[in-house]
């Protein structure tokens, strides 16, 4: 599971550099997220713009990451592709997570 994490303005932006978070990769995703968030950032933005496919296991993994961060830290999502958006909408998880259409200006990659 390829993740790239970068801290900027006190916010940890995590780019998922893989096109699926599914039953086969959900555990790896959770493990990698635990590694990149171990310095306890107050706010994590998960950039899902490269993720074309997320199933219920992938959704469960994103929820688990949010829960692992605890009540004092925030997980927000960004750049949901249409099919990922659909999973969040159908499960009403779009009412639980703050979802940005794309990364806010100050958090975009320089490259």
């Amino acid at each position: 599971m390829e993740l790239r994490a970068r801290e900027q303005n006190g916010i940890l932006v995590v780019h998922v550099q893989q096109d699926r978070i599914d039953a086969a990769s959900a555990i790896q995703f959770k493990d990698r997220m635990r590694e990149v968030t171990q310095d306890n950032p107050a706010c994590v933005v998960l950039d899902l713009s490269q993720v074309a496919f997320l199933d219920s296991s992938g959704l469960g993994a994103v929820v688990a990451v949010r829960k692992a961060l605890g009540p004092d830290r925030v997980l927000e999502l960004s750049g949901l592709t249409p099919s990922v958006q659909k999973v969040f909408r159908l499960t009403r998880m779009d009412t639980i997570f703050r979802i940005h259409p794309s990364l806010p200006d100050g958090l975009r990659d320089a490259d």
Partner: peptide, 18 residues
């Protein structure tokens, strides 16, 4: 759909709903 409640969000139970 499992109930979506603050601190105890479900991590599964979405498959058949989808």
């Amino acid at each position: 759909l499992p109930p979506l409640e603050g601190d105890n969000l479900p991590e599964g139970g979405f498959g058949w709903h989808l």
